[in-house]
Amino acid sequence: MNARTEPAEAEPATPARPPVVRELLLVAGLFLVYKFGRQLATGHTAEALRNAQDVWNAERWLRLPGEGAVQSLLLHGDVLARIANTYYATVHFPATLAFLVWLYLRRPAHYVWARRVLAAVTAAALVLHLAFPLAPPRMLAATGLVDTARVYGPSVYGPPSTDHLSNQFAAMPSLHFGWALMVAIGLIVATRSRWRWLWLLHPLLTLLVIVGTANHYWLDAVVAGALLGIALAVIHAPGRSATTAERGARRIVPAPADEQVLVGAAR
């Protein structure tokens, strides 16, 4: 039987890729708004420390494992602590940016979905940062945790009183974890490889790093995961048909019977 390759009749057209200049301006604008918003939450040292004590006590009441159990694994040697600090300082933004660029180039419909989800989670996080300033566990003496970035380096933060580039009292929710989890979920949804579930190692490793370096509490990651879950429930991912169209799927269909007869006669 002769066959020919032709686009499947039921397949939708490949989703249009958003204009790159508009997307660059949009992403840059969202980043600047977030950075400016974080600055509005600075200066609430006493309140942030009170909230930190409340979160620490709540975790003990909930019988969550102590953050120190993770940190103790890093303090066996300088190397592990420095690797964790470097991961915390350098992976967060580049990994998310690479994720968005790949989706933009290869899965445009999924890119729009992921960008909307990340924007929603980040906006909700900003509101919480303003309403509930929270000092990280490295600043709370009651935790007994070490500020691994200050002791072993590298550090992305200076003293809170002089650090004007970041808000160190924005521990809850953890966008490090929220973004990492979205990267993993986005790649799992947008790809079909049987190995795609390994992307979950990224948020898992991120969780161990943010807790082990004493930059976040367990509850910071729990709240980030909850916000992401709400965003994903409201902003639906593209269906399988969109994924197929993005991949330029084509299928082999049998040639019509009359064409097979003509081909046979020509031979």
Rank of each mutant, 00 (worst) to 15 (best):
R107A: 07
P154I: 06
H236I: 08
A98T: 07
L181Q: 06
L40K: 07
A226V: 15
W195Y: 12
N57S: 12
T42F: 00
E9K: 11
S174F: 00
T86W: 12
R22A: 13
L187H: 01
E259K: 12
G37M: 04
L75N: 11
L62I: 04
G225C: 06
T122W: 03
N215A: 12
L30N: 03
G77Y: 00
A84P: 04
I230L: 15
T244I: 10
L134Y: 09
Q260H: 13
R196P: 05
P238Q: 13
T243K: 11
R82E: 10
R82W: 08
A257D: 13
I185P: 00
L140V: 04
A131P: 01
V209W: 01
L97M: 13
A3D: 04
G248T: 08
A46I: 09
M172P: 06
T45H: 14
E246N: 04
R63S: 12
P173S: 05
P254A: 14
Y104Q: 02
I235A: 08
D54W: 10
I188R: 10
G264L: 15
A249W: 13
N51H: 15
L80K: 10
I235S: 08
S166G: 02
P108K: 05
V121T: 09
T143D: 07
L187N: 04
P136E: 04
W61E: 11
D220M: 02
L30C: 08
P173E: 01
V234K: 03
R196G: 06
S72A: 15
Q71P: 13
T162Y: 04
S155V: 08
H129M: 09
A98G: 11
T148G: 01
R22K: 13
Q168A: 08
T90Y: 14
G212I: 07
P108Y: 00
A10E: 11
R60A: 11
Q39P: 00
Y152C: 02
A98S: 10
A119T: 12
L201M: 10
V121K: 00
F93W: 13
W199S: 13
P12E: 10
V112L: 13
H92M: 10
W179A: 09
L118E: 04
F31T: 14
G37D: 03
P256S: 14
P15S: 08
W195T: 07
D220I: 02
R240T: 14
A120V: 09
A109S: 14
W102S: 11
I188W: 10
G248F: 10
A266M: 11
R116A: 12
A231M: 05
P94N: 10
R250H: 14
S166Y: 06
A58C: 05
W61G: 08
L201P: 02
T42Y: 00
V146D: 04
L49Q: 11
A237S: 14
V209N: 03
I185G: 05
G77T: 04
H164R: 14
L207Q: 02
R115P: 00
V211G: 00
W195V: 07
P65G: 06
H76Y: 09
L126T: 05
R106I: 00
L24C: 15
P15D: 04
P256M: 07
L75W: 00
L232E: 04
P256F: 05
G37W: 03
N167F: 02
V263H: 09
P256Q: 10
E59F: 04
A10I: 08
F169E: 09
P19D: 10
P65Y: 02
A233G: 15
F177S: 00
